[in-house]
Amino acid sequence: MELQSLTKVVPNSDPCVVVIDDDTQFRESLERLLRSAGLHARAFASIDEFAKSEPPNGPTCLVLDVRMPGRSGLEYQRDLVAAGVALPIVFITGHGDIPMTVQAMKAGAIEFLTKPFRDQDLLDAVNVGLARDRARRENEASLRTLRARFEELTPRERAILVQVVQGRLNKQIAGDMGITETTVKVHRSNMMRKIEAASLPDLCRMADQLNLLPKKAERS
């Protein structure tokens, strides 16, 4: 299983909590706890075992033991960060320390729980992770849809889009492109319809999402 595959989006897929801990009894107790709270849970004894499985399709939160035989939870977190995979992680450990906690939290962990911990603390952290991953997946799906609509624009419509969001008037755009103002209006109308922008502010938001304009620091 490639790391990037962990972030694929499948519409209407159920959330999943992945528990990775080499302690069989503890792993099974966590699985029971999560299922009792109405959450779909999958449990693995190691990172490698999880890596060989089918990746979850829906919003996902990892519950990782910090220290395990083979790759540790912290090492796997570093692998995910290096691969650009923003998967929420709740760390659990029987022997945590402050530097370890700081390292995990700086790398984006949701929570760092030291055994024994309250069941509710774990459930709260997992729900935060699932909500975060759900929002990320929805944003990525929305951006893919927007990019697909942008690809449907003609080169001239794309050029006009960029000039419009830069505040250029139809008359100025016509002069720059060597076409009539009426032609600009036609292309602009078609562009707005194709990209499904209801207003100029809506179009500006889309252009920002698509990174069509240079950053402010670069414009000055």
Rank of each mutant, 00 (worst) to 15 (best):
P155H: 03
S13D: 08
V17S: 06
V19N: 11
P59A: 14
T182V: 07
R42V: 11
S199I: 13
T93Y: 07
T154S: 15
A51D: 06
L74C: 06
R219S: 05
A125V: 04
S46K: 03
P56H: 01
V128T: 10
L130F: 12
L122E: 08
E111F: 03
A148K: 08
A174Q: 04
A86P: 03
V90D: 02
E218I: 13
I160V: 11
V85P: 05
P88Q: 05
V17R: 04
M1E: 05
A148I: 05
D23P: 03
L3Y: 01
T114K: 06
E140N: 06
R132I: 05
I89K: 07
K171Q: 07
L62S: 12
F91Y: 14
V19L: 04
L213G: 01
G94N: 04
R168E: 12
I92A: 01
V186I: 15
L212K: 13
M100F: 06
L6F: 07
D176T: 04
V126A: 02
D202V: 13
R136S: 02
S46G: 05
A51F: 03
T7R: 07
N139A: 14
A207D: 03
L153Q: 09
N57G: 15
A109E: 12
Q209Y: 13
S13M: 12
R137G: 15
G84R: 07
V10Q: 06
A159C: 10
K171I: 02
R188T: 14
D48A: 07
R137I: 05
A86R: 10
K52R: 15
N211C: 03
V165M: 10
V165L: 00
M206I: 02
A148Q: 11
K215A: 05
A45S: 15
L80T: 00
V19I: 08
V63S: 09
P116N: 04
E75I: 02
R149M: 08
L169V: 08
A198I: 07
D208R: 09
A131G: 13
N12Y: 05
D121N: 09
R67H: 13
